[in-house]
């Protein structure tokens, strides 16, 4: 049963890679050349998927002011990876478990003490992260730790790719089918309640999607830098548009484009892929910050000096 599923998953991925390569091969040869390697093809597909799913969710992270929560969950994933490694489980099982547990723990502290959410997050995620560091220092090499912390997209294999694909399809489906419910929950949760929506269910559902996305992005950008992909595309789009629907599309596109350009630059200049991707998306933000049509700092300055 599991083997059939795995076979089917690999077939789907090969099909996607095939379709992707048709497009890539239309590009000039210098651009297409790195992607003739099998590992680069897998890396490209992973980057596109991670860019898309992180980019899409980043709009909600920005609007819900969840940047710190994203940071917290991503750090809390580390002990899960370490424990899964100890027990011989797939890394994402442990990662998802500790990520989700930590976000629950934050809620428990917030509700039962007078400590506010920012402090609850700060203390929970550093504690979880410390546990991860301690376990890993006992069991694995520092190369391993570096890969988890900063990603290693060039070494991505089928299981991780399948997880990323699953996360992507799930997040996209949920956002499309429950667009209205998410909108009303993020904009005015009290009104959402007045219509009988189960807001705690939506709240924890969104946190689980966020956790899944972070786990699925581990190998591409790593624990530390995934926060950037969950914040910067949405922040950039937020400066550029006035409609939620366009913001979601734009942040997804920015996520994908940054991931692809970053991957290409990482290969050409032989630098860390996660870092390269994050630098590209940050460059997009800088451009929007300066030159956004209405809200850009330089744009407004130019308009003032012209008028």
């Amino acid at each position: 049963m599991i083997e059939t599923l795995q076979g089917a998953g690999e077939a789907v991925i090969d099909l996607l890679i095939g379709a992707m390569m048709v497009v890539v091969n239309l590009l000039p040869e210098t651009l297409a050349e790195p992607f003739q390697y099998r590992f680069m093809q897998r890396a490209l597909l992973t980057s596109i998927l991670v860019g898309a799913v992180c980019g899409l969710l980043s709009s909600y992270v920005i609007l819900k002011r969840w940047s710190l929560l994203g940071d917290a969950i991503s750090h809390a994933v580390l002990p899960g990876v370490a424990i899964a490694y100890l027990l011989g489980w797939p890394f994402f099982v442990g990662a998802f478990a500790t990520g989700a547990l930590t976000s629950l723990g934050i809620g428990v502290i917030e509700r039962n003490t007078r400590i506010k959410s920012d402090a609850a997050m700060g203390l929970m995620f550093t504690a979880a992260f410390a546990l991860g560091v301690v376990i890993i220092s006992q069991i694995a090499t520092s190369t391993h730790l570096m890969h988890i912390l900063f990603g290693n997209v060039l070494g991505v294999r089928y299981p991780a790719l399948m997880l990323t694909l699953f996360a992507g399809v799930l997040v996209l489906t949920v956002v499309l089918l429950f667009y209205k419910e998410l909108l009303v929950y993020v904009f005015d949760p009290v009104q959402a309640r007045s219509q009988g929506l189960n807001t705690s269910f939506i709240h924890y559902g969104l946190i689980l999607l966020l956790t899944l996305t972070i786990v699925a992005s581990l190998e591409t950008v790593g624990i530390i830098l995934v926060v950037s992909m969950l914040v910067t595309p949405g922040a950039t789009a937020y400066l550029l548009v006035n409609r939620l629907s366009t913001m979601l599309v734009l942040s997804t596109v920015i996520g994908i484009v940054s991931a692809v350009i970053g991957l290409y630059l990482a290969f050409q200049f032989n630098v860390a892929s996660g870092g390269a991707i994050v630098l590209v998306v940050s460059a997009f933000f800088l451009l929007a910050f300066l030159f956004a049509p209405q809200r850009g700092v330089a744009t407004r300055w130019l308009k003032q000096s012209a008028g």
């Binding site: 609007l63 909108l183 904009f187 005015d188 548009v241 006035n242 409609r243 939620l244 366009t246 913001m247």
Partner: peptide, 9 residues
């Protein structure tokens, strides 16, 4: 109670 910077019409 509502965030008026929200990108909605």
């Amino acid at each position: 109670q509502v965030d008026w910077d929200f990108p909605l019409s």
